[in-house]
Amino acid sequence: MYAGHFAAGLALKARKPEAPTWALLVGTGLLDILFGPFVALGIERATVTPGQPPGFRLDFIDWSHSLAMSLVWSVAYAALFWKRGRDIAAVLGFAVFSHFLLDLPMHPADLALWPGSAVHLGFGLWHTPYYWWFELACIALGCGYYWARARRLRSFGGHAAWACAVVLALHVMNAPWLSSGR
């Protein structure tokens, strides 16, 4: 999942408008943001699989994406914002964990319980024809909620429709008929 994580960030913004938008978006994407350097450093491994959706295979992502490490990153990220108040720290911590929750239906069984665990989770929507549509449904829900709350509260989302359009455009760019997928 890619754009769906941004939609989750916007939905959390709508739920807690006091939370900084950039921090919510970084939070929802944090596990993927960590994955890049971890692969570069050899801590995690992925293999490119051209023509086979989603275009790569995640061989070892336990340090960024396992259930236990997702919780660790969530708590660590929340701690960074503790001074902004408990509620804001909590929603930012949940933003990080939402990544695991949204990846769970999409990934094949490559989400370990903890680093090195033999048990791996993932329902494998990526390997079905429905993965792009499932993510689209998540985006519709998240962005719809954000857009409606932005119109009602008027304390954020000055260009809410454009923000949603950017998320949707990112998802369209990721469509299987436009690319080999991610």
Partner: peptide, 30 residues
Amino acid sequence: MLCLASFVVPIPLIAWLDRAPKSGPKPPPL
């Protein structure tokens, strides 16, 4: 799953679009 670059542009852009709406000037009193 994406590399770092896939977040560098969208996050500032979406955050910028999310900024609070400007309140327009108050209409002059009648």
